[in-house]
C-alpha cells in the first residue's frame, strides 16, 4: 500500500473526473450534456498529464481540445434544431452490436496494455519539466516530420478555400475574378457584381443552346 499523500488523493480525483466525464458522455440522453461532460473528461486528462510532469502537453490538451474541438462540437450540436428533444422509439435496437463492439475494443486495449512494456524512471519521479525537451526535439531532431505535418495542414487549408469558393466561368470560357462591389454609375441603385451578371448570362446562354 502506497503512502497516502495529497498528490495521491489529487491523482484519484483527476482519474475520477476523467471517468465521470467519460461516463457522462455515454450515459446522458441529452447530447448537449454529453458534449459538456466531454469537457470535464478533457480537464481530467489534462490533470493526469500534469501528474506525469508533461505540463506542456497538458496546456496543449486544454487549448486544443477544450478551446477547439469541444467548441466546434458544441457549435454543431447547438446549431442543430431541437436536438435535445429526440425520442428514440426502440431503445433495444443496437444494444447487442454496441455491446459486442465495445467489449471487443475493451479486450484489445486490455490485451495491449497487459503486454506493453512501460518505461519507469527510478524513484517514480521525473524532475525536469518536459517543455524544454519537447521544444528541442521538435525543432532539432524531428524537424522534418514537424514540417511535413504543417504541409498537411496547409493542404487542408487550401482545400477548404477551394471547396468554399464558387468559380464562375464567363461564356468565352475564361474564369471571372471575384469582386465584391463595383463603383456605382449614375442612376444605378442596386449594387450588382460582374460575376453574378456573367453567371446569369452564362445560364441564359446554356438554356438558349438547348
Amino acid at each position: 500500500m502506497e503512502e497516502f499523500s495529497l498528490s495521491v488523493a489529487a491523482f484519484y480525483f483527476m482519474a475520477g473526473l476523467t471517468l465521470l466525464g467519460a461516463g457522462g458522455v455515454v450515459f446522458t440522453e441529452n447530447i448537449v450534456y454529453s458534449a459538456l461532460s466531454l469537457m470535464v473528461s478533457f480537464f481530467g486528462v489534462a490533470g493526469l498529464y500534469i501528474f506525469l510532469n508533461a505540463d506542456f502537453v497538458a496546456g496543449v490538451q486544454v487549448l486544443v481540445y477544450v478551446g477547439g474541438v469541444l467548441v466546434l462540437t458544441l457549435f454543431a450540436v447547438m446549431l442543430t434544431h431541437q436536438i435535445a428533444e429526440i425520442e428514440v422509439s426502440n431503445k433495444s435496437v443496437g444494444r447487442v452490436p454496441a455491446l459486442l463492439i465495445c467489449g471487443g475494443l475493451f479486450l484489445v486495449i486490455a490485451k495491449a496494455l497487459r503486454g506493453a512494456e512501460f518505461f519507469t524512471t527510478p524513484g517514480g519521479q521525473v524532475s525536469e519539466s518536459s517543455t524544454y525537451g519537447i521544444g528541442n526535439l521538435l525543432l532539432r531532431e524531428y524537424i522534418l516530420p514537424f514540417e511535413l505535418a504543417s504541409v498537411v495542414l496547409l493542404a487542408v487549408l487550401v482545400g477548404a478555400v477551394v471547396l468554399s469558393r464558387k468559380e464562375v466561368i464567363a461564356p468565352d470560357g475564361t474564369p471571372v475574378p471575384e469582386r465584391e462591389t463595383i463603383p456605382l454609375t449614375e442612376g444605378q441603385r442596386v449594387m450588382s457584381s460582374p460575376r453574378a451578371a456573367l453567371a446569369g448570362a452564362a445560364a441564359k446562354q446554356k438554356v438558349s443552346d438547348v
Binding site: 448537449v32 496543449v60 487549448l63 477544450v66 478551446g67 477547439g68 467548441v71 447547438m78 519539466s129 517543455t131
Partner: peptide, 25 residues
C-alpha cells in the same frame, strides 16, 4: 510561476468560450 505560463493563460481562457456558448444555448 508556471513553466508554461502564457500557454496556460491562453488555454484556460478558452473556458470562457464554453461558458458563453452554454449561456447562449
Amino acid at each position: 510561476d508556471l513553466n508554461i505560463g502564457i500557454l496556460y493563460i491562453s488555454a484556460v481562457t478558452s473556458l470562457v468560450v464554453v461558458g458563453i456558448l452554454m449561456a447562449g444555448w
